[in-house]
Nucleic acid binder design. Sequence first.
DNA 1: CGTATATTTGATATCAATCAATACTCGTGG
DNA 2: CCACGAGTATTGATTGATATCAAATATACG
Lengths: 240, 240
Amino acid sequence: MFRVTPATCAGCAAGKIGFCANLGDTAIELIAGISRTLRIGKSRIIAREEQAPMSALVLRSGVIKVSHTLFDGRQQIVDFLTTGDVLIQHEGNGKVSVTAEATTDVDACEVSLADLEALCNDTPELAQSMLGAVLCEIGRKNQQVMMLGRKRADERVASFLLDFSERAARRGAPRERLNLPMSRAEIADYLSLTTETVSRAFSLLRAEGIVRLPKPHQVEICDISRLQEIAGGGAHLSVR
Amino acid sequence: MFRVTPATCAGCAAGKIGFCANLGDTAIELIAGISRTLRIGKSRIIAREEQAPMSALVLRSGVIKVSHTLFDGRQQIVDFLTTGDVLIQHEGNGKVSVTAEATTDVDACEVSLADLEALCNDTPELAQSMLGAVLCEIGRKNQQVMMLGRKRADERVASFLLDFSERAARRGAPRERLNLPMSRAEIADYLSLTTETVSRAFSLLRAEGIVRLPKPHQVEICDISRLQEIAGGGAHLSVR
DNA sequence: CGTATATTTGATATCAATCAATACTCGTGG
DNA sequence: CCACGAGTATTGATTGATATCAAATATACG
């Protein structure tokens, strides 16, 4: 028996958990087969209806941001979910407020956790994909911790661009011509910086010829190896 | 078929993944039944032998720290694992170097991933516990992200103490009389601060009568509600 | 008990935040 | 199609929290 529903877990504070699933096309099509499609307008908060069964969303297009909020109102975007990623909505312990909001118009498949569990039991490969994805997500989260803990502003922005570049490549989109639908403020929030600092980092990368910025939401990576060097923690750029 | 082995995952960079499992005594005893016990001396690096099967460790006592390292040598402790937690050792993609080191002498159960998977297939409750634990771990990681991204030095230290307090309580140890076996330097590393800043935060908490510090590695929480207030993001302490 | 190490306390430097102003985008209506 | 305006992004000047540098004190272990 495969179960997606978290068992009682004292450490588990979140009412929603998004994960960058990398399930693969086969798994996604499997889930799509038993789910109803859903269109979520930009800026809509994705809330679970009271009494509705716990459910999972699999994104087909668009971007969802997942935020945590502290008691005093400070909040942070902890993840951006894109095509192929999964959002699981379940009961939390009420300690932390977790919100998911559509950053763009979103197409998604919605499936109840009960149905998803049943499908996983019938399809071992799916169960394996899911668990593998969740384990990998812990690795990704550790890299995010590393980024916030050890990287400086321009390194964080470089890491962010590379992460999006790789995720784009994985779903077949061009690796070096990115569309970043979120605002500078949202990027800053995710990277734990201010819009001003993110903007300065972009300007610096542009001045160095590493990226081009035809429009604020379009990024063209010109020198991916230098971007990787910066993201990985090489010497940081100076303005001169 | 339940599989612990992550499938191919482009986003998965880690060669080791530790998670604060909260599996519960029943699950731990189940695993202990099929595993060999292991004693790991303080400061020993936990490395997978070449050619040895991929394995998981379940801690029975002691503390293991899990660190990530960037190309330029900067590193960070991303987790401390204590009694009941699980360390999964598997192949990474080589992008990030992940190390696990015993911070104290450690007693652990070691089981190959193959055996663990077999046991999970025979025991659905275990499979459920494992997956629930991994999902919850993502929630914990998001809180860690929040801590690094939004909390100030004294708030981070307060959060750290509360986290250890809750984990101690969960395994039956006293909630308000903590033994912190790791050094100030290790705490600072995990919280992305310096030893000096951690030390100042401890001194501040002591001056406010919130904790007592009979010995550097012993912390007595005197006013847990104020500690929670600080950790959750209340007004920060001033020296006056 | 003495020495090496860990921790605490103090003074200054630095990166990013904040405060402030300008420039750009994009949608709307003339 | 162009002009306008509201929101978004960029650039500049100053402040602040924590790092860094430096020293003193406490702890632990032989």
